[in-house]
Amino acid sequence: MMRNDEALTVDEVATILQVGRNTVYALKDKGEINSYKVGRKLRFTYADVQSYIARSKTAHGTDTREPLVQDRERFVICGQDIILDVLSNYVAQTGVESLRAYIGSYDALTDLYKDRVQVASSHLWDGETGEYNVPFVKKLLPSVPVVVVNLVYRMQGFYVAKGNPKGLFSWEDLLKSGVRLVNREKGAGSRVLLDERIRLLGAEPSSIEGYGVETQSHIAVASMVARGRGDVAVGSEKIARQVEGIDFVPLQKERYDLVVKRENFDTRPVRSMMGILESGMLREEFAALGGYDTSDMGRIMWIG
């Protein structure tokens, strides 16, 4: 587990938050994340980054606050993958004020239900049906007409130390004695996938060492495995390519979708977003990076 006083660089903070370097500098300049300097190098403590994440989640998680957006011409895209930052920037270039909220899939859908965001990203797997997203949309947005649009497909699997010394190749292997898990926070798509797989195995989560160790973001759990503070974590393939000292064990292809209320689907911001998805420019940019299957980008997967 990372120490609270552990020093992080701008790049490490950007990766944890899944934002660009300029966003980190902006958060520092606005006083939203504390920082300090070692010589001429800017540094952040892990505790201060986690404090910022916790404040952000609180700001998006209470029932008493006003909706984030009053004007439909302002536009909030909710989710944690860096592809959403790029999409938001493209939307902003069309003249729409495009904003970002960095929270997990479960909370994103509840914020969409409460009109706090206009677009929720989701990669929630339902173990009963084997489907992604639609079963959760039906439960978390009851009687709300929505459109589900594909963004990308990603591969989910295990982050393990180089060489996979514990021999972890399947969900059942998590139940081996002596395996230490590093978990994601409640509501994250990877956490829901893990919980569903454990449930289908008929196992108790408490039987897995480290199940209660919760960490924000794919990069944070991957880094903890790389540093030997856990044996395994669940996350996406893309992040595994960015962290030295780990291997990736592919287990399940996930569908990463965008969810929009039907009443907003014909507004200028959503039309701008759909135009970008259908144009191919975002598809080309991320297909070249690897770790993303963009074959269905912009395709309507479900209308409810």
Results as ranks from 00 to 15, higher is better:
149 V>R: 02
138 K>E: 15
284 E>V: 08
273 M>V: 09
90 Y>R: 14
254 E>L: 06
122 S>V: 05
144 V>T: 15
12 E>S: 08
291 G>Y: 03
240 A>D: 06
195 D>V: 07
252 Q>W: 06
276 I>C: 06
254 E>R: 04
72 R>Y: 10
204 E>Q: 15
92 A>D: 13
70 Q>N: 07
160 V>A: 10
126 D>K: 08
174 L>H: 05
113 Y>D: 13
64 T>E: 14
189 G>F: 04
272 S>D: 14
265 F>T: 02
141 L>H: 11
299 R>Q: 14
152 V>A: 12
158 F>I: 04
96 V>E: 05
183 N>Y: 00
1 M>W: 03
66 E>N: 12
56 S>Q: 15
64 T>V: 14
267 T>C: 01
201 L>M: 15
28 K>H: 07
210 G>W: 06
44 F>N: 07
100 R>Y: 05
37 K>P: 02
233 A>H: 04
228 G>R: 07
219 I>T: 11
146 V>A: 12
74 R>E: 13
304 G>D: 13
63 D>Q: 12
273 M>D: 06
95 G>L: 07
18 Q>V: 02
129 T>M: 05
80 Q>S: 09
111 D>A: 15
71 D>S: 14
80 Q>H: 01
99 L>S: 06
192 V>D: 00
100 R>S: 07
67 P>E: 09
221 V>I: 07
85 D>I: 03
164 N>K: 04
15 T>P: 00
231 D>R: 02
41 K>S: 11
45 T>P: 01
63 D>V: 14
54 A>P: 00
302 W>V: 06
266 D>G: 01
90 Y>A: 12
142 P>N: 02
105 S>V: 01
272 S>E: 13
113 Y>K: 12
175 L>D: 05
221 V>G: 01
220 A>M: 09
246 I>Q: 10
108 A>L: 06
17 L>W: 05
169 F>P: 00
231 D>L: 02
236 S>M: 06
49 V>F: 06
30 K>E: 13
296 D>T: 14
3 R>Q: 10
254 E>A: 15
236 S>P: 00
269 P>R: 12
118 Q>R: 10
58 T>M: 11
110 T>A: 02
128 E>S: 12
102 Y>I: 05
296 D>E: 15
77 I>V: 15
84 L>Q: 01
99 L>M: 15
189 G>N: 03
2 M>K: 12
213 V>Y: 03
196 E>G: 05
260 V>D: 08
220 A>T: 15
297 M>L: 04
68 L>Y: 10
224 M>C: 03
300 I>N: 04
67 P>W: 08
80 Q>F: 00
197 R>T: 07
216 Q>S: 07
149 V>F: 06
131 E>N: 04
16 I>T: 12
54 A>Y: 03
44 F>L: 02
295 S>P: 04
227 R>C: 04
62 T>Y: 09
74 R>W: 02
81 D>S: 03
166 K>P: 02
276 I>L: 02
158 F>Q: 03
285 E>V: 07
167 G>Q: 06
299 R>S: 13
301 M>D: 08
17 L>D: 02
243 V>Q: 05
65 R>W: 11
73 E>L: 13
9 T>M: 11
85 D>W: 04
162 K>M: 10
